[in-house]
Nucleic acid binder design. Structure first.
Lengths: 120, 120
DNA sequence: GTAATTAATAACCGATTGGTTAGCGATAAC
DNA sequence: GTTATCGCTAACCAATCGGTTATTAATTAC
């Protein structure tokens, strides 16, 4: 071990591994919508329109696509109810619950960064 | 307060705030490269080519653009040394250090997710 | 009869992401 | 002389991101 660690507790080899893991995570969570959708759903089961109302700015097309992606990655489940105006319910899976730390870290940093830069 | 909280410790109002903060963070960290670059630089000051070698798959064009973005957001500093083959050094700022928790959370989840899904 | 509702999908568009190739300068190695 | 080096930049291209509008079905409200 060298003294490199003092500058950021990241050695050459651990950096590589970290980067691989971060890439894996980002490949699944890419775009600005997925985490927002998951936060919204972490509140409880919701219908398509409810999510679209809560996640400000998202279009139906994107919401539909993102939900499909999330379903494929086993982060969300979809339940269709056989009613007249169609009813489709979405919920987070247990696996999505493991994203809690990521969400907390990101939202805390978002606030920090806004104070530092955006809200100059 | 309602019993909503039991299902995911996220109320309607806290969800909105969380989503705003997450959006702020993602607007700055978007794409699959920025966090990887920051992890690489967290090891210490590096030159352009060193980063490009460490962040697997990134092209010069993208690295150049991403570094510019990071500099604009005060996450990275750029130092030009006046030599013949040009020497440009990049370092993380103190502000970038506050991303530590985000990086840890994301890399841990990346590993978890790979075990769960990708590495079936 | 007309309009609104829900969860999409299709068609079309522009913007962004990201890759590839080529080029610049001055020097050093072959 | 030729080639390689470094940190970009420009030109060109494809794929993706993301928005808008229109359409579908069966039923309710006006």
């Amino acid at each position: 071990m060298l003294n490199k660690e003092s500058s950021g507790d990241c050695t050459v080899s651990t950096c590589r591994a970290k980067n691989r893991a971060i890439k894996d995570a980002l490949d699944v969570l890419n775009g600005s919508w997925k985490l927002q959708i998951l936060v919204s759903l972490s509140e409880g089961t919701k219908r398509f329109k409810e999510i679209s109302r809560e996640v400000e700015g998202i279009s139906d097309k994107m919401l539909s696509k993102e939900l499909k992606d999330l379903e494929m990655n086993q982060l969300v489940t979809r339940t269709v109810r056989d009613t007249f105006p169609p009813t489709v319910e979405y919920s987070v899976t247990d696996h999505a619950a493991t994203l809690k730390e990521v969400m907390i870290a990101l939202s805390e940093w978002g606030i920090l960064h806004r104070n530092k830069i955006i809200g100059s």
